[in-house]
Deep mutational scan, measured.
Amino acid sequence: WKVTVKGVEYTFDNPEEAKKFAEELAKKKGGQIHYKDGEFQVH
């Protein structure tokens, strides 16, 4: 499971962890999460 933040990729074994990480980042940066092709992208 991948989380991509401004072109930087983070990989997680667990989808729950990936989702949590993406949500935290989106909150911090005031961005939005897009889920696409099996990965979370924070913009």
Rank of each mutant, 00 (worst) to 15 (best):
G7W: 04
F40S: 02
V42Q: 03
H34F: 14
E9T: 14
K2N: 04
G7Y: 04
Q32M: 11
Q32L: 11
K28I: 14
V3E: 01
V8S: 09
E16M: 11
E24R: 08
K28P: 05
V42L: 08
G31L: 10
V42A: 03
H43N: 10
E9S: 14
H34E: 13
K27Y: 13
N14E: 07
N14T: 13
K27T: 11
E17D: 13
L25D: 03
A22W: 03
V8H: 13
I33Q: 03
A22P: 00
H34N: 09
V5G: 06
H43F: 12
H43Q: 10
Y10T: 03
E39P: 03
K2P: 01
I33A: 05
D37G: 04
K2W: 06
K27D: 12
K2D: 01
Y10E: 01
F40I: 10
K36P: 04
K27W: 10
E24T: 09
K19M: 12
H43A: 09
G31D: 07
H34C: 12
K36D: 06
G30Y: 05
E16V: 11
N14D: 11
D13L: 08
V8D: 10
K6I: 11
I33C: 13
Y35G: 04
H34K: 10
G38M: 08
W1N: 04
V3R: 00
A18C: 02
K29W: 15
W1G: 02
A22G: 02
G38C: 08
Y10H: 05
Q41F: 11
V8A: 13
Y35I: 09
F40D: 03
G38D: 06
T4Y: 07
P15M: 15
I33G: 03
H43K: 09
K6Y: 15
L25Y: 12
K6A: 14
F40G: 03
E39I: 14
W1R: 01
V8M: 13
K6P: 10
N14L: 06
Y10P: 00
V8F: 14
D37P: 10
A22E: 02
A22I: 05
Q32E: 11
K29I: 15
A18P: 00
E23Q: 08
E17K: 09
K19V: 08
T4M: 07
Q32C: 11
Q41V: 13
W1I: 07
W1E: 01
E39D: 07
E17I: 08
W1D: 01
A22H: 01
K28L: 14
K36H: 12
I33Y: 06
H34W: 12
T4K: 07
K28R: 07
A26I: 14
Y35D: 04
G38Y: 12
V3G: 00
D37Y: 03
W1Q: 02
F40H: 03
G31V: 08
K29M: 15
G31A: 09
V8N: 10
D13Y: 07
E16T: 11
E23C: 10
D37C: 04
D13A: 10
F21D: 00
W1M: 04
E23I: 10
V8I: 12
K2V: 08
E17M: 08
F12Q: 00
G7F: 05
T4R: 06
E23Y: 09
V5W: 15
H43D: 10
F40Y: 12
G7V: 01
N14C: 09
K36R: 08
T11R: 13
K19N: 05
E39A: 08
Y35N: 04
T4Q: 04
F12L: 00
H34R: 06
A26F: 03
N14P: 00
G31S: 07
G7Q: 05
K19G: 06
K2A: 04
K29S: 15
Q41A: 11
Q32R: 06
T4G: 01
L25F: 08
G30E: 05
K36N: 10
A18I: 01
G38W: 07
T11H: 14
F21T: 01
E9H: 09
E16I: 12
H43Y: 12
K19Q: 12
G31W: 15
A22M: 04
V8E: 14
K20S: 11
K27R: 13
V5N: 10
D13G: 09
G38Q: 10
A18D: 00
H43G: 08
E24K: 08
A26V: 15
K27F: 13
G30H: 07
G31N: 06
N14M: 05
K6F: 14
F12H: 00
K29G: 15
A22N: 01
F21M: 04
H43P: 04
F21I: 02
V42N: 03
G7T: 06
Y35Q: 05
A18F: 04
A18K: 00
L25C: 09
T4P: 00
N14V: 04
N14Y: 07
G38N: 12
W1V: 06
W1T: 07
V8R: 11
K6T: 13
G38T: 05
W1K: 02
K20P: 00
E16G: 09
L25M: 13
K28G: 09
A26W: 04
F12P: 00
E24Y: 13
E23M: 07
Q32G: 05
E17S: 11
L25P: 00
V3A: 01
Y35K: 02
D13H: 09
G30Q: 06
F21N: 00
G38H: 14
K2M: 06
E17Y: 06
T4H: 06
F21E: 00
T11K: 13
A22Q: 02
F40C: 08
G31I: 05
E17V: 09
K28H: 11
E17W: 04
E16F: 11
G30L: 04
K19L: 14
E9L: 08
H34A: 11
F21H: 02
F40R: 01
F21L: 04
Q32A: 10
E39S: 07
E16A: 11
G7K: 02
E23D: 08
Q41N: 08
V5P: 00
N14G: 09
G31P: 04
L25I: 13
Q32S: 13
K20A: 13
K2Q: 05
K20G: 07
E17P: 02
K20E: 10
Y10I: 05
H34P: 03
E23A: 06
D13T: 11
V3P: 01
K2E: 01
I33F: 06
H34V: 14
E24M: 10
V42C: 02
H43E: 11
D37N: 08
D37F: 02
F12R: 00
E23S: 05
P15R: 15
D37Q: 05
D13E: 09
E23G: 03
K20R: 12
K19Y: 14
P15H: 15
K28W: 11
T11M: 14
W1Y: 10
V3K: 00
H34T: 15
K2L: 10
V42T: 04
V3H: 01
Q41Y: 09
K29A: 15
W1F: 08
F12Y: 02
E9F: 09
K29N: 15
E9C: 10
E9W: 06
T11F: 15
L25S: 06
K36V: 14
G30N: 09
F21V: 02
E16D: 11
K28F: 11
V5R: 02
V8W: 12
F12D: 00
E23H: 08
V5H: 15
V3T: 01
F21W: 08
F40N: 03
K2H: 06
K27V: 11
V3Y: 01
Q41I: 14
A22K: 02
Q41G: 04
E24C: 08
W1P: 01
F21R: 01
Y10S: 01
K27S: 13
K29T: 15
D13P: 10
N14F: 07
Q32I: 14
K27H: 13
K2R: 11
G30K: 07
V3M: 01
V5S: 13
Q41S: 10
E17T: 10
K19H: 10
K28V: 12
K28M: 12
E39W: 07
K36Y: 11
E23F: 07
H43R: 08
Q32V: 14
T11I: 14
V3I: 04
Y35W: 07
A26T: 07
K36A: 13
L25Q: 10
G30D: 07
D13K: 09
K19R: 14
K36I: 13
E39F: 04
K27N: 13
K6N: 15
A18V: 01
V5E: 14
F12I: 00
F21S: 00
G30C: 08
K2G: 02
E24Q: 10
I33V: 15
N14H: 09
G30R: 05
H43I: 15
K20N: 10
Q41M: 11
Q41P: 04
H34Y: 14
I33S: 04
D13V: 08
Q41W: 09
F12A: 00
G30S: 03
E24I: 08
G31C: 10
E24S: 08
T4V: 13
T11Y: 15
F12G: 00
D13Q: 09
V5M: 15
L25T: 08
Y35S: 03
K27I: 12
A26L: 08
E23W: 06
H43S: 12
F40K: 02
V3D: 01
I33N: 03
N14A: 07
K27C: 07
Y10Q: 01
K2F: 05
P15D: 05
V42W: 06
